[in-house]
Design a protein around this nucleic acid. Sequence first.
DNA 1: TTCATATTTCCATTATTCCAGAATTATAAA
DNA 2: TTTATAATTCTGGAATAATGGAAATATGAA
Lengths: 112, 112
Amino acid sequence: MKVGNALAALNALSHETRLSAYRRLVKAGPDGMSVGELRDELEVPPATLTAHLNVLRAADLVQDQREGRVIRVTANFDRMTSLIAYLTENCCADAGQCAPVPVCAQPARRGC
Amino acid sequence: MKVGNALAALNALSHETRLSAYRRLVKAGPDGMSVGELRDELEVPPATLTAHLNVLRAADLVQDQREGRVIRVTANFDRMTSLIAYLTENCCADAGQCAPVPVCAQPARRGC
DNA sequence: TTCATATTTCCATTATTCCAGAATTATAAA
DNA sequence: TTTATAATTCTGGAATAATGGAAATATGAA
């Protein structure tokens, strides 16, 4: 991941509403949820949510798919993985300084 | 790590100059570097650097220590570790959706 | 068609952040 | 003391981001 992409992702996640939206989408899993469902949960006006989603989209942290009138939004897990890898390199690589990172420490989770 | 702390850290790192500063401090290792050295490398005016450092300080991503006239700044590795853990939980925990995270994948690094 | 719904874009307003010069504080050296 | 250096705070203007109402677009249903 390039610096510019990391900055875009960090910026996208650094806003309360957007972080909430992203977390909610992660919770929703691979099926994601519609913009309307997200709006109901976050309780923000439509235009405001769209603006925030656009930031997350530009950072490639979410992707969407139109299903008729509804737009289904999903979290881009790979992108988050890349961001975490980028930060990890910032933490470990150059300095040889590496605090133990509890990544996927929980047992019995898929992919861990 | 609480949401507010994660937001502060994400926000602090979401600016090009601040991310550069933090990365440079990580590279400098546990001894860190003086504000002046950092200023020379980043080539920003003193007041500007101080303002950015204050954001990183507020997020507890760096800490400093006065040595005479010089202030020595060091990266707070634990804080970054906590941030990575927070993001990892956002990525894995609730959804049971976990992409393989290449944390400390490089061999022969201390602590990995 | 016409109507209804989902979502977006447009736009203006407000709020926040960024920037960097000037003044200030802190410390050390002469 | 006085002088010099390191870094900070203060400050105000410029740039950017956030907000949300209103209008526009996209799609499906009647």
